[in-house]
Design a protein around this nucleic acid. Structure first.
Lengths: 142, 142
DNA sequence: CTGGATGCAAACGCTTTGCAAATAG
DNA sequence: CTATTTGCAAAGCGTTTGCATCCAG
């Protein structure tokens, strides 16, 4: 990746105005949301913010290890706090996503953490397949 | 998700022309590729195919449990055969991705498979953080 | 013949970028 | 006062869709 023209607003200790706004909102949410949803919510709360700023903010928070993201089946990025670590069972056909509680990966993550130069912030684990409804729907078309 | 106007070209036993083309190419590749890369490769081999068809084909193969996908950091979908199951360690800053051999998840997957109506095709597991180079680069900006 | 598959180009939607104004320290 | 940060609008870019044509059975 090429060097950025604007130096990154990433590895500083203090939060910018928008970072504080976004972070505060996310702490009140219990699930992952898209940038556009965050944008709309903030606007509804009469908090002035631009969509581009939301994206820039989320990128910065991600590089600081505060926020994590995964991609929904429609190609949208869904953001959540790293602490709210959850995995999913996602239907390839309808895109519906069911949260999972179990996570057998923390052990491996610990190993990787101690043995590599790579600095791990978070991981995503997602199972893909067909939910029961979509299994039926597709069988009909056979 | 709404019902599709064209019934899915998904759960039939035989392969369409394009499915055969794409599948054959993918079997000769050892890593995940984007739809556009597949399109270019096929064109270079003088195999007539449209980009839209590549996308439709990949979707169909995914719904049949033959192909899996993950999203690269730049938002592109990367496709591979389900058999070539690999996980990754991905840098949030430069986007570089390192393949992982270990996978502690198959056990959980087996459990899910037997206990749920959900029909699991594959899973993705990805670790995100900063590679050593990017750690340095970002520290400078502090 | 009939319905699905394909190609092309246009449309879409999420995300990023250029640039000038606002803000922070 | 200088360097970031922000907002807006425009551009970017991967993906999807409309539609006419092609092909398979």
């Amino acid at each position: 990746m090429e060097p950025r023209q604007h130096p990154p607003e990433s590895t500083k200790d203090s939060l910018t105005r928008s970072q504080a706004q976004v972070l505060k909102l996310m702490q009140h949410l219990d699930c992952a949301v898209s940038a556009q949803e965050l944008f709309t919510m903030l606007r509804n709360q009469h908090q002035n913010i631009g969509l581009a700023t939301v994206y820039r903010t989320l990128k910065a928070l991600t590089l600081r290890g505060i926020v994590q993201l995964r991609t929904s089946t429609n190609g949208e990025s869904l953001y959540s706090l790293v602490e709210q670590d959850t995995h999913h069972l996602t239907c390839l056909n309808c895109g519906q996503s069911f949260p999972l509680k179990e996570c057998p990966v923390h052990e491996l993550e610990a190993n990787l953490r101690s043995s590599q130069a790579f600095k791990i912030y978070y991981h995503t684990l997602e199972f893909f397949g067909l939910c029961s409804l979509c299994q039926l729907q597709l069988e009909v078309g056979t």
